[in-house]
Structures are given as structure tokens and as C-alpha cells.
Design a protein around this nucleic acid. Structure first.
Lengths: 216, 216
DNA sequence: TTTATTTGTTAGATGAATCTAACTTTGTAG
DNA sequence: CTACAAAGTTAGATTCATCTAACAAATAAA
């Protein structure tokens, strides 16, 4: 049995591991908003449960089992976000908090139902991939908008940070997944970009914004 | 702030109060499957929070605030059951457990959305009324099938016990809300009833079953 | 009305998840 | 290569929800 709290630790560890594969206690502590000693003892507990590989002063790693558990939670989270948008009519900036709670519901049928009502989606409303039924996750290799050169036209496929604030920033500029963006020019000084897309022929995006937009 | 656990106490108290209005610690303890001393201390806590009227050795009562809080949780539970059946295609015997978890989700918009998708339903899939947005609940005054005399035809409007087992018993006999039931004869010895309805011209129902079927 | 049963309360222990304060290891900047 | 900062650990306290054991009150039965 994995508790609500333990699920949150696994999920964070899973998400933080996406790049490097190894995560520090401090990093995890920050991400969860929980103090290091608490994280420390939880890691010992999760080690006992064979969900995490933990040795003092070494970086943290999920075991295969831990990875699967965590992947399935992320699956539930992302399916829920998709459900909230596609079936219930929420906008993409309102779904995170709700999904954060629903991801802990214990009922495979409930999520299977969502999955089939949605037609087995592979990405959530922010373009993040939905892990499969074994908890496996693969990111398509998108480029960040930052890597695109002037003149190119690309399609917005995902956003990295899905905080309400950032999403509302995008809403305000009518930027949504699927939008075809043409990079008009790049300011080499601060890496801000002048872009154009349907309905917006001249929009400025800062480096901070560009690096969070994944395109292909 | 009312915790997940506290919500469950309030809800049970609310449901048990429906008839009498007053509930004993023992009764509540049984209903929640939690030992009396635990219930006892929780009552003291809920008294501090002005949700329950509690005095040693006196029966328990919800305050107006407590009644509202509890009513809103029941509202969330029943809206969820309705949503699971009408929107997600679950059968009425599969929804209780899931609703038991979803009722604790903190998101008014989520339940408002359900409510409007369902067209503001007034009863759940078992015929129990859904409290309004202020947590107020009124039961229509149905009769139990037990009170119906031979020869009468009535409509099944609600079931009292919504355990999986009982609901599957009804499924197996094709008895659902709305079914028009004709009472053919009543066995005065054990109060079992011979009834007929569409597709079932001769079905026997025990007293135990009849008293749980609410009709009009 | 005395006694027995049921119901309710108090006291004290436990486990989960959290914290702060103090200490230790690791790794990096002089 | 020391020394200092950052990261990690240990120890011990706190809060919440739960339990068992023992005691007290209320109620029902004899």
C-alpha cells in the first residue's frame, strides 16, 4: 500500500528524474515544499518498501517498481487534466489543482473510463505525454522555441511550466497548442524573439517565455 | 478548515440525523467503523470548531454550520454518483466507493460543472435527494413497498440501502428506478410479497427487500 | 430498588507526517 | 590544501487520527 503522501514523493521524484535520472534530497525537498529532514526519513521508508534506491549522501533513484507506481500516478494526473478540458470544458489554466487531487483516487475503472471516453489520448492539455498503462513515459524530442532561427515557422506542441500564471500569459496572447509560430527576428542581446502567428502579426516574447515553449 | 477525516464524521452525523435528529456516540462509532473513544475526542474537536453540539452523555447534534458543511459534502457525493452513471456510464452498483473519495475534492467549480452537465439533478442514481447549494436536503415522503396493499400498482422511486450486494440483487431481477410494480398478493405470515412488473410476471420479494424499496 | 448491561468517558500509547536545532559530509573557492 | 558553503543527516518535539484498558453514567431488567 502506498499512502497519499508517499504517492506525492514518488511523483515528484519521477518528474525530477526525467532528465538526469538522479535527484538530490534538497532538490526533492524544494519541489515538494517539505523540509529536508522529513524527506530524508521518507526516503528511508520508501527504501524499505523497495520503491527508492537510497544510500546516505548518494543521489536518489526510483527502483523499477517505484518508477512504475510513479508513472501510473502521473498517468492519472494527465488523463484527469485531459478529461477536465475535453469532457468537462475547463480551460488549461484551471485543471492542475483539481488533477492534483483526483490523481490519488483509487479506482482503475474510473481512469480506464476517462481514457476510453477521451479516445486514449497520448498527451495532456499542456502537451506533456501521458504514461502508458505500465507507467512508461516517453517525451517526443521537441526543440525549445529558443533554438529556432529567424525565418523558420514551427508548431507549438507543449509548454514546460504549466503554472496558472504562465498559461494565462499565453491565453492573453492567444497562444495555444497547435499554433503555427513564425520567428521573424531574434534579438541577440537578450534572446527575445519577434514572432507572428494567426491574428498576431507582431508579438515580442522574452527568453524566459521562449525557453518554455516546445515546438516542432 | 475541515479535514478529510472531519468531513467523514460530519457526513455520517448528517445522514444518521435524518430521522431522529439526534445521534449517540455509539451509533456514530458503528457507522464510521471507528472506536468510541476516538469518536468522543473528535466530537470535542468539532465542538471547538462550532460544527457539533456536544455535552458529555448527551446525544450529538450538528450546529447550523455543521449541517451546512455536511449537506454540501453529501451534495458532492450524490452529484458525483449521478455523474458517474449519466456521464461516465457506470452502473448504480459501482459508484458509491468512487464517490466516497471524490466527495472530498476541494473545487467548487468541479462540482458546479458536474451539476450543469447533468442539468441540475435533484436525486442521485439510487433515488436519494441531492442537497441544494446551501446543503439543505428534503426527502419526498415515499412509502416503503411494505405499506402497499395487494392490487395496487406503484412506481419504484428510491432504494434505502445502496450496498453493492443489494443493488446487484435488484439488477438480477431487473428492478430499477421507475419500474412500475404491481403487488399481486401479500403473505401475512412473513410479509413477503408476490409482485409483477414488465418482463417479470411473478416475482417474490422478502420483507427485508420490500422495506428497502421506496415507492409512490 | 438493586443489579446488570449498554453506552459514554478518561488516560495513555502508537504510528504517520511534519517540524526545528544541531551536527556531519561533500565539494568548491581561495 | 585548507576552509567555508551547500547539501545531507540525526535527534527530538509536535499534531492528527487512531487504538486499548480501565473507569463512570445511564438505562433496562429482575
Amino acid at each position: 500500500m502506498v499512502s497519499y503522501t508517499e504517492e506525492n514523493y514518488l511523483k515528484s521524484l519521477f518528474l525530477l528524474s526525467q532528465g538526469s535520472g538522479e535527484v538530490g534530497v534538497n532538490e526533492l525537498s524544494q519541489h515538494l515544499g517539505i523540509k529536508m529532514p522529513t524527506v530524508n526519513s521518507m526516503m528511508k521508508k520508501l527504501r524499505e518498501k523497495k520503491l527508492v534506491v537510497y544510500e546516505a549522501y548518494k543521489p536518489l533513484k526510483l527502483t523499477a517498481r517505484g518508477k512504475k507506481e510513479a508513472g501510473l500516478i502521473v498517468r492519472k494526473h494527465r488523463l484527469t487534466e485531459m478529461f477536465l478540458v475535453d469532457i468537462m470544458g475547463f480551460t488549461w489554466d484551471k485543471v492542475h489543482e483539481i488533477a492534483e487531487q483526483i490523481e490519488h483516487i483509487a479506482s482503475p475503472e474510473f481512469f480506464d473510463r476517462m481514457d476510453s471516453m477521451l479516445g486514449h489520448p497520448t498527451v495532456d492539455p499542456h502537451g506533456s505525454p501521458i504514461p502508458d498503462k505500465n507507467g512508461n513515459l516517453v517525451w517526443k524530442q521537441y526543440r525549445s522555441l529558443l533554438e529556432v532561427t529567424a525565418g523558420e515557422t514551427v508548431k507549438l506542441c507543449a509548454v514546460i511550466n504549466s503554472s496558472d500564471e504562465f498559461l494565462r500569459f499565453l491565453n492573453a496572447r492567444n497562444l495555444q497548442l497547435g499554433t503555427k509560430i513564425k520567428v521573424v527576428s531574434v534579438e541577440s542581446f537578450d534572446q527575445s524573439m519577434r514572432v507572428s502567428y494567426t491574428g498576431h502579426s507582431d508579438e515580442m516574447l522574452s527568453k524566459i517565455v521562449c525557453e518554455k515553449l516546445l515546438v516542432e
